[in-house]
Amino acid sequence: MTTALSIPLEHVFFLAIILFLIGAFGVLIRRNIIFMLLSLEIMMNACGLAFVAAGARWAEPDGQIMFMFILALAAAEVAVALGLVVQLARRFETLDIDRAEELNG
């Protein structure tokens, strides 16, 4: 059974890297920590996409399984991250990540 798709592997990876880079771009430009985490999610998705594509290339379930692990990972990370965000909002009274720069040098 196929989905009658026939495209070069690279194209999917192009999509994945573009999403990855958009996510990275988001991390770089956003000062709001929420958006940063959101961008991170896009990057995670890009990785998932890459795994699924790789799995599809070999017609194996391993890619999807890795995707599931990534899901768990993303979920775990978001949970902790949002906890931190809440703390940030309280202790720094802002969501501006640039304000958290007391540690430097």
Binding site: F13, A16, F20, L40, M43, C47, A50, G63, I70, L73
Partner: peptide
């Protein structure tokens, strides 16, 4: 981690 994962995906591919 995402870089790591992406790398793994490509190696796997």
């Amino acid at each position: 981690s995402t870089a790591l994962l992406f790398g793994m995906a490509m190696i796997y591919a």
